[in-house]
Amino acid sequence: MTAAETPFEPKIVAFCCRHCAYAAADLAGTSRLAYPPSLNIVELPCTGRVDVLELLRTFEDGVDGLLVAGCLPGRCHYLAGNLHARQRVDYAQRWLEDIGLEGERLRMINLSAAMGAQFAELATEMAETIKGLGPSPLGTRRAAGEIPSIGCAACGDPAPSLAESAHDRGDGR
């Protein structure tokens, strides 16, 4: 099979809260419900852990789509982590639009641990959306280790040397 004939299998990352969506994904698996095989699940203690910086960096890394899956509104184990995540997803979507990527590549969903079927359904739906949009125009995934580490003089973390922070990020050179 040539490259042209290879069907586009979107690379999707799902940031899943361990209290709900992660368990729902597990349930979907044990219930033998199909969801896209290219879905990479990252377990989080709470979607409140998600930051705009991580959302953008994930796209910069070359994913085609990103799901943030948290608890149902009012059911967050930390009270409002899922609500904060929603605000950050909305904010990151505006960044994506400004950058020139479709905002639909990023989506927040809310589930309970019992909603395995819904998880499979929503993940499939997301894969269909991304298939419609096509691969991320940012191109190939960058090599691991190319994401710059940030030094912070403010909080006492050693700042990276300039030589280090000026390290080629894989862009342009």
């Binding site: 910069e60 020139g100 990527l101 940012l138 710059p148 940030i150 003089a153 922070s165 862009d171 342009g172």
Partner: peptide
């Protein structure tokens, strides 16, 4: 970096604070 990559004018942006 992403915006410039999409514009076909890649730019390296190093970060420090």
């Amino acid at each position: 970096r992403m915006a410039r990559r999409l514009d076909g004018q890649p730019m390296s942006v190093a970060e420090t604070t």
